[in-house]
Amino acid sequence: MEILNDYGIVLALAGAVLAALIPGMASAKAVSMGGIAGAGVITEDPAQFGKVLILQLLPGTQGIYGLLIAFITLSQIGILGGEGDISFVKGALYFAACLPMIIVGYTSAVRQANASVASIGVVAKKPDQFGKAMIFPAMVETYAILALLISMLAVNGVSGLSI
């Protein structure tokens, strides 16, 4: 058990890195889906660029939320600051705290991209309905925000535990 405690930091770092990695990958895919749909609209009607760009960027936020969790974690496990002495249990707790963002970030980005692509279709046909079209992808994002919130509170909470 004593030896395991040396590896606490590894678990914590794995959580942080995966939080940046997996939602980032998903957002990259999501934004490219929006970009492909958007490029089609722009060939027909270049004036819609601004609206299409917003819709394309919407599912890009998961990657940023992931980065945020990664950074908060890094800054508390002694890599970018904070205490370096992480026990095995604490490392595992950090890993668990990152999980909501890792998993929900991944799935919600891709699903939000589906909604974004559909909304880009709306803008192509009815540019004046942009306000409504924007809400559909934003609904999906709610769950990424909730995951971000829990991950953020959990990481903060874990740092206060003395185990």
Partner: peptide, 23 residues
């Protein structure tokens, strides 16, 4: 009401990313 927790999340996101850039 829980939906308004996004005020916290988005507000923190701005501030923390800003601090990351500064750091």
């Amino acid at each position: 009401v829980l939906s308004y927790s996004r005020l916290l999340a988005l507000g923190l996101a701005t501030g923390v990313i800003g601090s990351v850039i500064n750091q």
